[in-house]
Design a binder for these strands. Structure first.
Length: 493
RNA sequence: GCCCCUAUCGUCUAGCCUGGUCUAGGACACAGGCCUUUCAAGCCUGGUACAUGGGUUCAAAUCCCGUUAGGGGCACCA
């Protein structure tokens, strides 16, 4: 049997990272089985339609490298892949159900429905359901021309079993399954009708979707029976939660693919992380880092855990850092440029003479980055002017202002006399200087770090200074010198 | 409330199916140390978990039942 799976989002906004995790499972399963991965847009709710959503969904998938074989943009043998373009199909199928007696017309008004529900609640009914008012009306009692909906005629007795690949048979009592609306009064199908019709027509073999659908699946199973179709294999995978144990949502922070992209997470790292949310290789295999190819070789749908997983930003940061550290410097540079540019630190396009500096900076920060965006905070002092640090900040550890001033002056001399202004050349004389001044290397270098970056924490000093250049470095030192001089003058020295 | 799902360190998880090898393994995070010009990275060390009660069994994290807890669902939304 050909494996055919799908991602069927409704175009209501930015794809959620939790949903994307499920897409990753789908995609991996399709690709490792030589199957097809299909994108289908479920836009049957006209009130929630968002114009750019489809495009954003496609972009998000592309960014993560989750390519699809059939979809609204590229078509395929079972199109169209947008439900709003398949309306006649649903109409036809629902008529079939009507003829077979598996569905009925219902012209109850929303007001009546609401009233019924309220009465049921008041009476202490556990699960409010449609009261079946139109269920047994004689055929023709409701004209096809008057406003109405079409409902599924769920058997009143017996039970419906949902076979789930991961949890076995899940049983539901038919008497608690509502007569689900299949076709809305606007002629659009509801999700339940459309999903069954399309999954069947598109020959979907496995429905891999989030847990939250499990409880509506018996309705789908009944529909498959009504149509006399063989249902696909159902695979319900756990939800992704936020730190507080609730379903992950915007209030937990970054949640859309676009958010992660903007913050400088690498798509390969995100893919890796997502695949590990609810799945692990097991059997003594303790790897955490998987390339796309390794994932393809190792992932096993049947090993997906059944309990929901909390999305750990800490772990994502760690994985992202691992990928950044393992990356070729030239590749990292390429990916960093847009972030420098977005912050206005580097012009766009990058002036050719600037590449050398950029290439010098990359090794300084590579192992310090968790997210690409961090490069801005880390390196801004190299590209822009800094504020002169307050004099107190320039005083070395266990040193007086005067001693600090002398150190700054001595450093200026050493740096001015350097033949080549590069990290390797400047280090020995500076170390020597520390010794000559009777200082620990750290004492001296920390003064220099603050003077040249106005930061107490910064990338390695000599490399940074090299990138800043001799002229600007000396300028900064001389400003530090002034500041210290003033401090000394203002106090009673 | 009712229905359904789930339950191993703070978090992600291995182990559970095919009970003994589990005084429960790994990773992230955390703490301490080493390295070190700061911060990282790296290395070393440390603490922390089988929700609970009952069975079954010579033996249970592993099998069964109850309880509890968490989650999901109960729309002319998907």
């Amino acid at each position: 049997m050909t494996i055919r799976v799908r991602f069927a989002p409704s175009p209501t906004g930015n794809p959620h990272i939790g949903n994307i995790r499920t897409v990753v499972f789908n995609w991996l399963f399709a690709r490792q089985n030589n199957g097809k991965f299909i994108l289908r847009i479920e836009d049957t709710d006209r009130s929630r339609y968002t114009p750019n959503a489809v495009q954003i969904i496609e972009e998000s998938l592309r960014w993560l490298g989750l390519d699809w074989d059939e979809g609204p943009d590229i078509g395929g043998p079972y199109g169209p892949y947008t439900q709003s373009k398949r309306l006649p199909l649903y109409q036809e199928k629902v008529n079939e159900l009507l003829e077979k007696g598996w569905a009925y017309r219902c012209n109850c008004t929303p007001e009546r429905l609401k009233a019924v529900k309220e009465m049921q609640r008041a009476a202490g009914v556990d699960t409010p359901m449609y009261d079946g008012h139109c269920r047994d009306l004689p055929p023709g009692a409701i004209s096809p021309d008057e406003p109405h909906v079409i409902r599924l005629k769920v058997p009143r007795e017996g039970e419906t079993i949902v076979p789930d690949m991961l949890r076995g048979a899940v049983t539901f009592e038919n008497q608690r399954i509502d007569d689900q609306i299949l076709l809305k009064s606007d002629g659009f199908p509801t999700y339940h009708l459309a999903v069954v019709v399309d999954d069947h027509l598109m020959q979907i073999s496995h429905i891999i979707r989030a847990d939250e659908w499990l409880s509506s699946t018996p309705k789908h199973v009944i529909l498959y029976q009504a149509f006399d179709w063989t249902p696909p294999t159902f695979v319900h995978v756990p939800l992704v939660m936020g730190k507080d144990g609730q379903k992950l949502s915007k209030r937990h922070g970054a949640v859309s693919v676009a958010d992660f992209r903007q913050q400088g997470y690498l798509p390969e790292a995100v893919l890796n992380f997502l695949a590990m949310l609810g799945w692990a290789p097991g059997e003594g295999d303790e790897r955490e880092i998987f390339t796309r190819e390794e994932l393809l070789a190792t992932f096993e749908l049947s090993r997906v855990k059944l309990s929901s997983a909390v999305f750990s930003y800490d772990k994502l940061d760690w994985i992202n850092g691992v990928y950044i550290r393992n990356m070729e410097k030239s590749e990292l540079l390429k990916r960093l440029v847009p972030f420098w540019q977005a912050a206005g630190l580097v012009p766009s396009p990058v002036p050719s003479e600037m590449f050398e500096t950029l290439a010098q900076v990359v090794p300084l920060i590579q192992e310090r980055l968790k997210r690409l965006k961090d490069v801005v905070e880390l390196t801004d002092f190299i590209f822009t002017e800094i504020e002169t640090p307050p004099a107190e900040k320039l005083v070395g550890k266990k040193m007086t202002p005067l001693e600090s001033l002398e150190a700054v002056q001595a450093m200026q001399t050493v740096l001015s006399n350097l033949v080549n202004f590069d990290a390797a050349t400047m280090e020995p004389p500076l170390r020597q200087l520390a010794q000559d001044l009777g200082l620990k290397a750290g004492q001296l270098f920390n003064i220099m770090r603050v003077a040249t970056s106005n930061k107490r924490v910064a990338p390695p000093l000599f490399g940074s200074i090299e990138a800043i250049g001799r002229k600007r470095t000396l300028q900064r030192l001389s400003r530090a010198e002034e500041a210290l001089t003033q401090l000394i003058a203002s106090e009673k020295y």
